[in-house]
């Protein structure tokens, strides 16, 4: 792969043109299919039509943003989402990186089981996680509060942090830690000056993704939230299903949630090539 790396990436000129056009059209079609819908929501946030979903919009206006901003319900929901996201992310950072360190550094009984267990919350349908948590919270007699939402979110946020940190740890050589210890550094010094600089960006990226995921989550949240509590996605869901009158404001909140989520993910993506929601790092062995 190494010596031929350049050729492999070069477009194949010998291929017949007509078939490539068909392929290109298909690619374009799929990409449009994937990306246009969200843009449509952005467009509708500006529409003057508040009764139906007329396309193309009869006119454009910015007044819905003002109305949404003044809406106390919306503010509460977004603020709750922020708080939950931050607390869950912090918990996930601590627990997720500890788990990653344990799996990466040592071989112990049940290691494989644990690495499987850690992927389960992403692999199993969200409803399973949701109802499992709800039933055990019920059984334990705990009230559904802010903290039960956080617990639910932390469960899958851990997985994201774990995946990111583990991918990085596998790539950092264990010998630098041994070297640092041999040179007389204390455990804390080794962590602070050797390990942290190496995994720092992975931690940050994992944290950003975890926050974004938490900000996005609705299925598990619906099972773990208390009666009066609504995160921003729950608010949107509620508006879509139960209060169709609220359309224009819903559009604005929808757009805002997308934009808020984009920012941390962009940063995460900049920071590291490992960052991936699926936990499968892109194949970057052939970089440079």
């Amino acid at each position: 792969m190494a010596e031929g790396g350049y050729k492999i990436d070069a477009p194949d000129q010998t291929e017949r043109a007509p078939r490539r056009w068909g392929l290109k059209a298909a690619v374009l079609g799929v990409l449009l299919f994937l990306n246009v819908p969200v843009l449509i929501v952005f467009l509708y946030a500006f529409t003057t039509d508040d009764q139906a979903f007329t396309f193309p919009p009869p006119g454009l206006t910015g007044k819905w943003f003002e109305i949404a901003w003044d809406n106390q319900d919306v503010r509460d929901a977004v603020w709750l989402s922020f708080k939950v996201g931050i607390v869950a992310t912090v918990a996930a950072l601590v627990l997720g990186s500890l788990a990653a360190a344990a799996v990466a550094r040592t071989r112990f009984f049940g290691r494989e089981t644990i690495s499987l267990l850690l992927v389960l919350p992403l692999a199993l349908p969200g409803i399973v996680t949701g109802i499992a948590l709800r039933s055990s919270i019920n059984v334990l007699g705990i009230d559904f509060t802010f903290w039960t939402i956080v617990a639910g979110h932390a469960t899958f946020c851990i997985v994201v942090v774990y995946n990111n940190v583990l991918a990085r740890l596998r790539r950092t050589s264990g010998s630098i830690i041994e070297a640092s210890m041999d040179l007389g550094a204390t455990g804390w010094q080794t962590f602070r000056y050797v390990l942290l600089p190496n995994i720092g960006t992975a931690l940050l990226a994992g944290g950003m993704l975890a926050f974004a995921l938490s900000f996005d989550e609705v299925i598990v949240t619906r099972f773990t939230a208390g009666g009066s509590q609504r995160t921003a996605p729950l608010w949107i869901f509620d508006s879509i299903v139960n209060r169709p009158r609220n359309r224009p404001v819903t559009n604005v909140v929808a757009m805002a949630v997308v934009v808020v989520m984009m920012i941390p993910i962009f940063v995460a993506q900049r920071l590291t090539s490992d960052a991936s929601l699926l936990g499968s790092p892109p194949t970057d062995d052939d970089d440079d």
Binding site: L34, N35, P37, V38, I40, V41, Y44, F53, F55, A212, F215, D216, V218, P233, I236, F237, I240, T250, A254, M255, V257, V258, M261, M262, I265, L277
Partner: peptide
């Protein structure tokens, strides 16, 4: 699309 809110993506089709 994975980076946009899942609920918003579903909702967009209600509009479309």
């Amino acid at each position: 699309p994975l980076w946009s809110n899942y609920l918003v993506r579903v909702y967009s089709w209600k509009l479309i």
